[in-house]
């Protein structure tokens, strides 16, 4: 039975013990990530359909993305996954200092990613590559190139939105850590955030080749 919990205990009233609460959080997070896979999945489906319809247009449009910035961002994001994993590890060893330090690094790297993304977006804006009435892509005037850029903005935009949510979450975790809420027995929120962050990274691992590397092997 749950004790009438003193303020310090992280055990909520409706759970019998901490293990049950931990299991529930973990399953809930994984289930949530599965919904996220399906959320992105519809966009990937659209990508597959249109790439099969317009292979040449997708190749031409893809070659116009900035591969250097894209590759740099990929490296940044992988590095942020490392610092996130270190934060989770620090949680398991009960090091509040370690949690905070690594979460700050994760925020810094995530922000670098978003900054680079903003630079890329502004380039596209100046080059009239944002879909809509002012879109023009003289290199490949046929149908399909605008669809590529529509999907580029929809997919990377949705991904960036998830990064922003993640960074907000990281700030909240730092606040919780600073209040001494985590210890060796309990650092579940850090771990759950870690799952989310890695998921968002993995989405990018798929987006990068699909969007940037369509025709690069030639």
């Amino acid at each position: 039975m749950a004790k009438t919990s003193d303020k310090k205990s992280p055990l909520q009233h409706h759970f019998v013990h901490l293990n049950q609460q931990y299991d529930a959080s973990q399953m809930g997070m994984w289930a949530f990530l599965i919904t996220e896979i399906l959320f992105f999945g519809a966009l990937f489906t659209a990508y597959i359909v249109y790439r099969l319809m317009y292979p040449a247009a997708f190749g031409a449009a893809s070659s116009h993305l900035d591969i250097t910035l894209g590759a740099f961002n990929t490296a940044v994001l992988i590095a942020s996954s490392l610092t996130m994993a270190l934060a989770v590890h620090a949680g398991h060893t009960g090091s509040t200092r370690g949690i905070i330090k690594n979460l700050i690094w994760t925020i810094v790297l995530g922000s670098v990613f978003l900054g680079v993304k903003a630079i890329e977006y502004s380039h596209k804006f100046h080059e009239h590559l944002v879909p809509g009435p002012s879109f023009s892509f003289p290199l490949y005037p046929g149908a399909g190139s605008e669809l590529f850029f529509s999907l580029y903005f929809a997919m990377t935009g949705l991904h960036a939105f998830h990064m922003v949510i993640g960074i907000i979450g990281l700030f909240i975790l730092i606040g919780m850590a600073a209040k001494g809420r985590f210890n060796q027995e309990y650092s579940t929120p850090v771990e759950m955030m870690g799952l989310y962050w890695h998921f968002v990274d993995i989405v990018w691992i798929f987006l990068f080749p699909l969007l940037y590397l369509v025709l690069r092997h030639h």
Binding site: Y50, P131, G132, E146, L147, S150, F153, A154
Partner: peptide, 11 residues
């Protein structure tokens, strides 16, 4: 935003 995704006019 008038971004073409399902619009046949834009492929």
């Amino acid at each position: 935003f008038h971004i073409g995704i399902f619009n046949p006019a834009l492929g």
